[in-house]
Nucleic acid binder design. Sequence first.
DNA 1: CCGTATTTGTTCGTATGTATT
DNA 2: CAATACATACGAACAAATACG
Lengths: 266, 266
Amino acid sequence: MADPKYRQIADDLRRKIDAGELGVGEKPLPSEKELEASYGASRNTIRDAIKWLTTRGIVQTRPPQGTFVVRIDPFIIAMDRTNGFGGESAAYASEVEAINRKATVSKPRIEIQQASEAHVANELKIEGEATVLSRHQQRYIDGLPWSLQTTFYPMTLVQSLLQKGATRLLDAEDIPEGGVQYLQEHLGIKQLGFRDELRVRPPDTNETEFFDLPEDGSIAIFETRRTGFEEDKRPLRLTVTIFPVDRNQFVFDVGEVPDRPKSGAA
Amino acid sequence: MADPKYRQIADDLRRKIDAGELGVGEKPLPSEKELEASYGASRNTIRDAIKWLTTRGIVQTRPPQGTFVVRIDPFIIAMDRTNGFGGESAAYASEVEAINRKATVSKPRIEIQQASEAHVANELKIEGEATVLSRHQQRYIDGLPWSLQTTFYPMTLVQSLLQKGATRLLDAEDIPEGGVQYLQEHLGIKQLGFRDELRVRPPDTNETEFFDLPEDGSIAIFETRRTGFEEDKRPLRLTVTIFPVDRNQFVFDVGEVPDRPKSGAA
DNA sequence: CCGTATTTGTTCGTATGTATT
DNA sequence: CAATACATACGAACAAATACG
């Protein structure tokens, strides 16, 4: 036997999808029962074929309506300059709207907690039991969930702000110009550099739910961690941003490069 | 029923793996038959549990030896400055060896072809039927497959080189200092900037085989495309590099940031 | 080199639960 | 409430790849 039957079925379904014969518009693929009949395979074999397509992000099944072809216009995230994961919602919105899509941002959820999670303490170089303030926001494009972002500030910084009467970091309101700008205005602290770490991992339960990813964890997510540094290379804040890989792409420009073509086309 | 049985089994296996009770050393997990007995579940349910772990990159099964715990030290790819995907094997080797790991590079496979694949023609801004030269190399760390790299040069550039008697781009030999440097030396063409595009997608058949990824496509790959530009922002070359996401991580530094701790520790 | 045992891969069948329409 | 469609679970059989004597 050359190829397993479930692969042959999966390949045939994929061919039909690419050819536009299946899954056009809002219609789901034929049900498992129908496929069972048309391919002469048992239901479990059909399910294996569909699982193979699901793992590759080609289809997605929403019980009990059926299995749908996934078609997503990727959003291109420009990482030139200080852009990208900065946490400045105004910059994010203007970039999204430049390609005729609509950006929205949830109000932040504010938390004060021990920086016990190893990575936060580590990257903010906080000793032992220090506390941090976190601001967590959800971002949407055209109403679809697009990214999750959490920024951590050392509590010592927040207290310095409070002493000057600057309380916006504690408000559950968006800060369009970004928290870094706010720190600079009120404390004179400048972000002189930053480090981005980018990795890919399977989504956790929260992420799966928010992004409406398949339960089986087959669509991975980008996790980007931007640590900002002030004078003496001391860490200023840590911003963690989560993007599903299936709807995002990153672009970095260095030196003299041509303009990017207006994206957003299918 | 709170959680499905296969998830309970998967969670229990994961706990035991994290606690070091399972999969230590070179030993595989207990066989499906043994797990069947110890969990009182049918073989298919056991297989569902293992599939759940496989999709998350926690285990990998190699028939018919068994299922093994995956333990990989990620390699951190620094993207500061011109580093990263440049195609300079010397730079790559020194970065890898700085963390006490051994880098090797295959001899390149040279091909001359029509730039028919849409993306190549598009990014090199080549008209219609123009030809390109491609150099394809496989890179290893500690003997394990780590990345695949292909660089495309417009054939017109290659011909200019040949007229000056510079033939190394056609040799199936590594160019440690990189093809860009070679172009500059012999044609005086400088790369004044570049654009990196980074996206994540499921691996194709070749990639699955080379990297020894699970057949089910559950481990995604990074695809990075670096287009280099010379004067007048004309494209000079396109380098496509493929990394499996499970063994790589990217770091970008901008401005003043502290030194990175020596990585490579487990 | 051969045959056997082990282990996973694939496929079938069947039954029951659960969520949506 | 009923019908539909997917999710979970069990059992069984044969195939394919590898290890070992």
